[in-house]
Design a protein around this nucleic acid. Structure first.
Lengths: 354, 354
DNA sequence: CTGAAAGCGCTAACAG
DNA sequence: CTGTTAGCGCTTTCAG
């Protein structure tokens, strides 16, 4: 059974048709259809309205945007919309956009500078009013320059841009307190009695990852603990790298093993826990594990994950709101920090007394 | 209505400027900038190209779309982009769109007919070329009619629409084999030796939920088992309803308790498992549990979830591809079914022999 | 209050 | 091969 291909049948009515049918000029028709503040007599207005209704008239946003130089389109540039981290941010962005009559375009960059650049150009071509960089800035000097150029071009034209994490781009930024969150979490572990605390880092070229590591180091130093390079495990923000880290740890001689492992994000923490459990090491009895992010599934694991919660949806909402403010030509602070919060669950505990 | 360009720092160059600078007509400039097949001499082409480069010219897609009556915009209408189910589909859609030079608009409907209608109108106004209905059709006769009207209006105009699940809309559809998957899973449970198999259904007004229930019933009947109404638990596709179902089950007299519970989706299954474990019932030793969907986290649970896998990303890709085919005025089947697959993990086992 | 007309930036006839 | 021109559908001066 085949479906007949769609073939354009009836002509979409334009405002000209509405004007004709209502017996008024297009100017007047436009004024009522666009809710202009320009005065139109109640009777004329009514005539236009019913003509539009009879015709099933729908304004052409493309023409409107072309004319007004405002597309009412905003874009969310994310690493991968499938990643709950980005999904949650996108949700916040989309909600605010929707509430204000904007449409949201998704762009998955896969953290690839070239894809990011490609998308940016497309967005520029569509005269997208605003762009939210949800992911971190990619440290790739070659593309960074071009990306910056396109962004400047857009902002120079009246568009707005904003980042939701540390970024090389010189645009306003709204960020979760990654440093503070990591420092607080580490401090908490220390207060629990841990001394040998390992960290599984994120991708070296990702700024958020580095900032979290800084937070960890700051706490260690503040508390007078030494940072053992052996306990700084390279990770990649994914589960696999967490499992690898667990493996590395278990190969360490018992006396130099950490009593706690701080994974730079939740996914990595899942991997760590899984890797540990597979090797018969109990969490948190033998080793405590914590993450960063508080993904929805973090509380479902057993043991449920202790982690640093980032108010992601709120971050997305704040970002979109800031964008709209910028579009209204109003000032916003260059950088706004949103507090994170430690959520203690089952994966952390005081270290075993030897 | 919309705000004028706030502070046009530098005037965005249009094709007219390019033409002037290259010393050619706009027609010629357009021909080279739009990669028209129309012949242009190599020298002229070069002149235009360098003029464009010097000016930093970027084509205006809005104008292009207005003129060509094709926006190169497609939209994914999802229940909630935060739901891994939809996120995965969206990813597939976005990938294909991107590969073909289209931009993807996200619309979260929250399964609300009014929001769906609102979005549809906005998409129509933007002359979106194609729409993918990722969620099921909402059984709400009042809005359904209006929604259908807008969709017809759009397809009549040359746009394409497609659904990725059972839907009242009369447009082509690409679907996972929900019936077959549920039947196979149920059959598998029966083969393991289960006789008393409960099902936790999805929202009654969601077609997918009903189809899965049908599959369950078909298998039961085929195998000559009776369907005990006591074992048909009302669910809502969320974790809470799964926990509630677990509670209900544990309140049943021991002899009439099920030995296996089939949750209509994974989230519900998580809830069931959680609820069971909390009450000291072991999974799968005491009761087997399985789900439908294979969310990423399903394999991370302990016990890892046995479930029916839906190739979601592929579904999204297939949907977008179908849309593009339709846009090319080519035929596609009215309905295409994509096979599901049973993934057996740790949450199911033969029933305990009494 | 209403209307005529000038474009927004681009493509595609239709001439040369 | 190149150029002129007529719109796509809409908003907004600028005149009544």
């Amino acid at each position: 059974m085949q479906k007949p291909p769609p073939s354009p049948t009836k002509q979409t009515p334009s405002i000209v048709h509405v004007a004709e049918r209502a017996g008024v000029s297009v100017a007047t028709a436009s004024r009522v259809m666009s809710n202009s503040s320009y005065p139109v007599s109640p009777t004329t207005r009514q005539k236009v309205l019913s003509a539009a209704a009879e015709l099933g008239y729908a304004p052409n946003s493309l023409a409107r945007s072309l004319r007004s130089q405002r597309s009412k389109l905003i874009a969310a540039l994310v690493g991968d919309n499938t990643d709950p981290y980005f999904a949650e941010i996108m949700r916040g962005v989309e909600e605010v956009a929707n509430e204000h009559g904007y449409l949201t375009i998704v762009c998955n960059t896969d953290r690839t500078p070239s894809k990011e650049l490609y998308y940016l150009q497309a967005l520029r071509d569509y005269r997208t009013d605003g762009i939210i960089f949800a992911g971190g800035g990619l440290s790739d000097p070659k593309h960074a320059e071009q990306i910056e150029e396109v962004v400047n071009e857009m902002t120079g034209r009246g568009a707005a841009a904003i980042t939701l994490s540390q970024h090389t781009l010189n645009v306003p930024s709204i960020q979760a307190d990654n440093f503070g969150g990591a420092r607080d979490m580490t401090t908490r572990l220390i207060e629990l009695g841990h001394q040998r605390i390992a960290i599984v880092t994120g991708p070296a070229n990702l700024t958020v990852a580095n900032v979290r590591m800084q937070g960890y180091m700051a706490a260690m130093v503040e508390k007078g603990l030494t940072i053992d390079p052996q306990l700084m495990l390279a990770g990649n923000f994914d589960q696999i790298s967490g499992e690898r880290a667990a493996q590395t740890v278990t190969q360490l001689p018992v006396e130099s093993r950490p009593t706690a492992i701080f994974a730079a994000n939740d996914e990595t923490a899942f991997g760590v826990i899984l890797g540990l459990l597979r090797r018969g090491i109990r969490v948190p009895q033998d080793i405590s594990v914590c993450g960063f992010g508080d993904l929805p599934m973090s509380r479902l694991l057993s043991p449920a994950l202790t982690t640093v919660q980032i108010p992601l949806r709120q971050l997305g909402r704040a970002g979109a709101l800031a964008l709209l403010t910028l579009l209204r030509r109003e000032q916003i602070p260059a950088i706004e920090v949103i507090a994170t919060k430690i959520i203690e669950r089952e994966s952390t505990a005081p270290p075993r007394t030897r």
